[in-house]
Design a protein around this nucleic acid. Structure first.
Lengths: 87, 87
DNA sequence: CTCTAGGGCTAGGGTTAA
DNA sequence: TTTAACCCTAGCCCTAGA
């Protein structure tokens, strides 16, 4: 679609991204977009979109979500997937 | 400088901007300002300045430049980049 | 070839100078 | 008050390197 240049993120998309990072780890953008668990919410997003959005979320997280565990570790709660994340 | 004074656009600058859009396409602001062909006229302008000026020109073009071809096409001199213009 | 990291750039809402 | 000019920045693009 050439109509809209800027596609603002919805809360549903943001939540899917956070859940995807929690499951696969930060930096595993293609794994997240391809995961059937998040496909519905991230249908209009590319792996690059996810990377860029995460960069923005990290930049402003001190103003909004101060201490969310998701922001500091990849998978502590869900089943072990990624060994370690530099994020 | 006392604060930030406004730098009003001259007709020469406006013409250079229109020529730049005709050559590179609307949205290629950095390409236009960096183009040696327009550097002399746009020396005091940034890519953002060009974008903002074009927005203002479009807003009031019905009152001034009714049907100028420049307002409707980018041109294909450079490699296929801008497929169409939402303008 | 695909993918990510990070710098570069634009789009559009918001702000300011006059 | 209105608005051209300018600012802010989320979102998107480009591309080297893995």
């Amino acid at each position: 679609m050439l109509g809209h240049r800027k596609n603002k993120w919805t809360v549903e998309e943001e939540e899917a991204l956070l859940a995807g990072i929690a499951k696969h780890g930060s930096g595993k953008w293609s794994n997240i977009v391809d995961d059937p668990e998040f496909a519905a919410q991230l249908l209009d997003r590319t792996n690059i979109n996810l990377k860029d959005k995460w960069r923005n979320m990290k930049k402003s997280r001190t103003h909004t979500l101060e201490s969310n565990s998701i922001f500091t570790s990849p998978s502590k709660t869900s089943r072990a997937v990624v060994s370690n994340e530099p994020f």
